[in-house]
Design a protein around this nucleic acid. Structure first.
Lengths: 234, 234
DNA sequence: CCAGCAGGGTGGTCGGACCACTATGAGCCG
DNA sequence: CGGCTCATAGTGGTCCGACCACCCTGCTGG
């Protein structure tokens, strides 16, 4: 009786998901705000707690809600990182031709991000880039190399000043994805080449030369892209 | 007792999600394949059906699984569209500065996609582009205009030959997102300008001129981007 | 041979019970 | 009086068992 709309479309849980999303979209629920308890929410929408829990779980994995055991359910800050975390799942589960497509997207975004970074990067950020570059060349532990490689690009993406783009790139370079590609890639002695490419990117950043940065980054990702394309062909 | 690993990390449901994701990642579960029943899966992992249902629901909203009432649970084809559908949620819930960031990402991807399309588009696809262009100019029903506008760009994205990129762009132009922006945008008489920009994009496509297409698409999205930036500024 | 129906199996929903954790405040100790 | 401890209420997490709605198969009867 609390509501007028009982359109019966889709499952009960699905409707609950939409309702909560709508509440947030309309500003009834502010970022960081605490929601009513599961029991109250279920009663409000006239559904069982089980169904409501499924809806909450769904919005949790989407990065919209956050459940704290013993405390309550909260709306996340709805920042880029929260919402785009699921992008990593795509990278993890993609295979074959789709990996090439993902690398193509990454090449486009990463080259632009690096170009933007060249124009905007601060001295502190540049120093951090150099730190990861040095650390990457100082060890031969693959695990560590990948970590610094990721951090290298992460700093650059952050310097580009677009959090959304940075979050997407983060997902496209998620740990497992990178490790999966590297495994076979470095077996071909691509180590030296990667090192040279990273150095080129750093040079362009230090010189604040966007065009050179774009080219260097595109070439860097493009190398991996071409290698992967070749793996699938014959 | 069935397994060796009971590391007790995170919630039971979270572990179930990871387990199923891992099964798919390792190829134990093929795309399109049917899973055991909820009851069996729950028994296999030693958890309750409720928890298993939450895990399944989570993977369902991520576009990894698909539940068919009365039939069973299936792995999706894991195509770009399946996995990137959640991208629309990001667009729906983003506001303020993040909308500008999203438009910037869209500008970068859309301009590249349009450039690729200029080189690869077929006669049939070009005809479809023209169809939507004409339909868009023939009516003044905002609903219909938006629909054809979306379709216009969708065909172009498809012609670029990168399904992943097309899926991302689809999410960035989702119905509600587009409607939300249009509402205020067209109040400023941006109609004629939009029409001109679309015509320019079509010309570049017909001429198979990638550079012109890139410029036209970038300008098109950039217009909206600038308008939105202005809305937030003062 | 085929249309129609009935049954079993599946996901969807519900309600309730109990557990694990957190936060709060009353009460104790220093 | 101030700080600490610990009981306790409230919250999300898990489990169970029942029933419903729907799909699919196979059987039945024309």
């Amino acid at each position: 009786m609390d509501d007028e709309t009982a359109p019966q479309k889709g499952t009960v849980t699905q409707r609950a998901i939409e309702r909560i999303k709508a509440m947030i979209g309309e500003g009834l629920l502010e970022p960081g705000q605490r929601l009513p308890t599961e029991r109250d929410l279920a009663a409000q929408l006239g559904i069982s707690r089980s169904s409501m829990r499924e809806a909450i779980r769904a919005l949790t994995v989407l990065g919209v809600l956050e459940a704290r055991h013993g405390s309550g359910i909260y709306v996340t800050l709805l920042e880029a990182g929260d919402l785009l975390e699921t992008f990593g799942v795509v990278a993890d589960l993609s295979r074959g031709p789709r990996l090439v497509e993902l690398l193509e997207v990454r090449r486009i975004l990463e080259s632009t991000a690096t170009a933007l970074a060249a124009a905007r990067i601060s001295e502190e950020q540049l120093a951090e880039v150099e730190r990861h570059l040095a650390a990457m060349n100082a060890t031969d532990d693959p695990e560590e190399i990948i970590a610094h490689d990721l951090a290298f690009h992460r700093v650059i993406a952050a310097a580009a000043g677009n959090d959304t783009m940075a979050a997407i790139l983060e997902g496209l370079s998620s740990r497992t994805f990178r490790a999966r590609v590297w495994r076979g890639y470095q077996e071909e002695g691509a180590f030296a080449r990667t090192r040279r490419e990273h150095a080129a990117i750093h040079r362009a950043l230090a010189a604040h030369d966007p065009e050179a940065a774009r080219a260097a980054a595109a070439a860097h990702v493009g190398e991996v892209e071409e290698w992967m394309r070749a793996q699938l062909g014959p």
